[in-house]
Amino acid sequence: MLELHNVRVYHGPIEAVHGLSVSVSEGQCVVLLGPNGAGKTSTLSAIAGVASSRGQITFNGHDLEGLSIEERQRLGIALAPEGRRIFSNLSVRENLLIGAATRTDRPGVASDIDYWFSTFPVLHERSDQAAGTLSGGEQQMLTIARALMSKPRILLLDEPSLGLAPLICKQIFALIDSLKAQGMTILLVEQNVRDALQLADYGYMLNSGNLMSEGDRETLSRQGASMSTLTGINHT
């Protein structure tokens, strides 16, 4: 479904990823692992069109080269970015509405909003409050819900557990698990190796912009111990 072939990602003059190939097929949950600065977020940014890149990225047979951020989104690529980036002055409901900006079926949008409100009652309670007043975990839920409002074909999830308390992390991972069960294709970036690998069908391990290893859950778990000494990832 999503194929990256020898992709190099640039931040201005600096090359952050040096030729990465990744493949995600329909219904799969693929995880990118690695320490800070490994190039995980850069890879997602390149797919979403936020960062400039070279190499080939295809999605459902479309070559993404030259497509703008919004055109990629309209093909069905949704990004729930690192740091959440909710619209803090807009209400929770408006944040969800804006997620569905590309959809034209008003009743469908309304029922989807109701679905998310029933999944996360907290969001319902605060539906008319400014989203900036939500807690970190609530904001993360809102970010994922907002990304899914557009009914994407693939969800790019960037460090959803970052900076959240363990209990909240658990909820987030449970949510990702249920999304996966519903058949959503997910490309997940995580530093939380153990939890991420439990969800993943396949994984890639990056360090300093290079691919260190790849494999299915078992392979990566087996390599986990050596990997943690190499990359300094806390493997607990």
């Binding site: 979403a48 936020v50 703008s68 951020i69 919004e70 989104q73 309209r74 949704a78 990004l79 970015p81 980036r85 619209f87 803090s88 002055n89 807009l90 408006e94 509405l97 804006i98 997620g99 900006a101 590309t102 907002r146 557009s150």
Partner: peptide
């Protein structure tokens, strides 16, 4: 709403598929 959102984070608005 999109315009208000754009004044906060233009790139994020584009990531929502809004031109």
């Amino acid at each position: 709403i999109a315009m208000r959102a754009a004044s906060l984070d233009f790139e994020m608005v584009r990531l929502m598929g809004i031109r």
